[in-house]
Design a binder for these strands. Structure first.
Lengths: 138, 138
DNA sequence: GCCCATAGTATCGGAAATGATACCATCATG
DNA sequence: CATGATGGTATCATTTCCGATACTATGGGC
């Protein structure tokens, strides 16, 4: 998270991809957003859904999401404290991305590395002309 | 990149999101995939499209994408060397994600932090009951 | 007076990601 | 015989991420 951010998103064609990715990057942000799509949640409620996150990290990630305008942090002046986190309109606009991630994950439950056969674009390497060799990296 | 990977993607509801994110995480992978959607590219061709990537990083990211079964690395036994990178079927299955990222980025060219008004789900916090306070974090 | 709950902060340290730089092999060309 | 092109490696330093742990404030209940 919090890599040096791009100033603008239109430096080059693929730049928007990279910049957007950076916004939801950071080990927990995607999941946090995912849970917030279900509705407003209190701090500890989020924590319960992410059994392995530390308090420190949850705070940090939420602060960044807030900073980026994705979540709204609402503090109720009570004791003990009560803080609710909800998505902003901008936050909800990420839904297609998060859901695409979720969908892909659900459809690829196993980490299959089915190194499938090359599907060539017909203009490239007219097949069996150069004796291409598959990577020997591993 | 290369965070400790999840063994399976179905540990908890949001887990698929997190795990999928990890696969395309790593500062350059998203952009690399994006460019490969246009077609097969040689090593230096990719490099030209990513002016700031170091050779070391490009190699590393491509190796990981290959390891995860997203790209196919084809070596032609020529001199000087010729290595082509193309997407596998599995790699192409990421297209909805990458394109969702690109779309969002294009539609949010400016980093507007329009901390907009809370859109409440009607069952939560019946409005103006507790004197909610907006975050004072910054 | 002590403990509990909530939502944090502060500090430290290790691990991981990334950047900078230099080096390498091979053949073709001049 | 030096140089260039391509696609890398190897090594080192730095930056960033992230986990573990301890600490804090407040008011209520026992």
């Amino acid at each position: 998270m919090a890599r040096i951010r791009h100033k603008s998103l239109n430096c080059s064609p693929g730049c928007a991809v990279e910049a957007t990715l950076q916004l939801i990057d950071g080990k927990w942000k995607g999941v946090i957003l995912y849970h917030l799509f279900e509705g407003t949640l209190r701090f500890n409620a989020i924590r319960k859904r992410l059994p392995n996150i530390t308090q420190r990290m949850l705070t940090a990630q939420l602060r960044e999401l807030e900073h980026d305008g994705f979540v709204l942090r609402t503090v109720y002046p009570e004791v003990p404290p009560k803080v609710e986190y909800s998505l902003t309109v901008r936050g909800r606009s990420l839904e297609p991305i998060i859901m695409a991630l979720k969908k892909w994950g659900d459809e690829n439950t196993e980490f299959r590395h089915d190194r499938d056969i090359r599907i060539d674009q017909d203009e490239v390497c007219p097949a069996a002309q150069s004796p291409a060799i598959k990577s020997t990296t591993e």
